[in-house]
């Protein structure tokens, strides 16, 4: 498309927006088809429910943790495993960038929970945006999106009244990896299913080794990944305690006391705290550009190729 509106070349605008995202640290950027999102997302969770005059959604993917992070204790990863804040930071900045550069209304799409709906329903699905934008495909690990080159990413979205040409979803799904297919053929399970500490993942592969079915017990997963849900439970136990000792145990006993610390340092210590399915995923951990070390190596090899 080479659409010009008021002197604005929309293809140049898209390129400029993508360049902004990459400069700020995004590994992947895409524009999902707004009409498809509106058709797939349920009422109340569509982009137009949040921004009535939205014309485009821009989806941003940032890389996961360093290669070294996959080798540390799960206890340590609970504090720093998630890298979503970079995606949100880029999306937030991008909304400002579009307004100032193209004089068109834009907004950071909150990736947060819908405050009306408790702890498990998001306002909008940034996952759906990323999948339709072609920067991730659903995996057997609870539909976590994976990318064939970048592995496991975190996503953010921007809504804008700028009308951009949409991209398309990925042609192929990198999940399951060949080694996972082999394991499934011999044991009936893939690594993510086998090593999930909540045993919340299940699925089937077809004869060709493609995903036939994915089953995800999100409630069990939440017990490992959404520790903030325990906070009111602890307070309720403390209120209901019959004596001061039981009250102290509820508030200060064992790992419960650590929650007060996590609450004070913010979401990095409270959200998405379990990475065991991704730790054993060959796409998340071994995709060609899945961590800074691999990306540096790829850049070095490319530079060496250029100089010869």
């Amino acid at each position: 498309m080479d659409q010009s509106t008021d002197g604005l070349n929309i293809d140049d605008a898209k390129e400029s927006i993508f360049a902004y995202a990459r400069k700020k640290g995004a590994l992947a950027v895409g524009v999902p088809d707004l009409a498809a999102i509106e058709r797939i997302a349920p009422a109340g969770h569509r982009p137009s429910d949040l921004m009535p005059k939205v014309k485009s959604v821009i989806s941003i993917g940032v890389g996961g943790q360093t290669q070294g992070a996959w080798g540390v204790t799960a206890k340590a990863l609970t504090f720093f495993g998630s890298t979503e804040s970079l995606a949100y930071k880029i999306a937030y900045g991008m909304a400002y960038f579009i307004e100032s550069r193209f004089e068109t209304r834009s907004v950071y799409c909150p990736p947060d929970l819908d405050p009306e709906l408790g702890a498990r329903y998001p306002l909008q699905s940034v996952k759906l945006h990323a999948e339709l934008a072609g920067i991730g495909a659903r995996s057997l690990a609870g539909d976590i999106l994976l990318h064939p080159d970048y592995g496991y990413m975190y996503f953010g979205s921007v809504y804008t009244e700028l009308e951009l040409e949409p991209d398309t979803p990925m042609t192929d799904n990198p999940c399951p990896a060949p080694s996972c297919v082999n394991m499934y053929k011999s044991t009936g399970r893939t690594p993510c299913m086998k090593f999930c500490p909540a045993q919340c993942l299940d699925g089937e592969l077809d004869e060709d080794g493609n995903q036939a079915a994915m089953n995800y017990d999100m409630a069990k997963c939440a017990e490992m990944t959404q520790q903030y849900e325990v906070v009111p439970q602890i307070i309720a136990e403390a209120i209901a305690a019959d004596n001061p000792q039981d009250r102290d145990d509820a508030l200060f006993g064992g790992s419960n006391k650590a929650l007060w610390y996590k609450m004070s340092v913010g979401s990095g210590g409270l959200l998405a705290q379990c990475f065991e399915c991704m730790r054993v995923c060959p796409i998340a951990t071994q995709a060609e550009l899945s961590d800074p070390l691999r990306r540096a190596k790829a850049r070095r090899i490319a530079a060496e190729g250029d100089s010869t």
Partner: peptide, 19 residues
């Protein structure tokens, strides 16, 4: 969602990782 939430499961994480 809160009644069925088993808050003892989380401790499994303390023994995982590093191989």
């Amino acid at each position: 969602e809160h009644k069925r939430f088993d808050n003892t499961n989380y401790a499994k994480l303390f023994k995982l990782g590093s191989g």
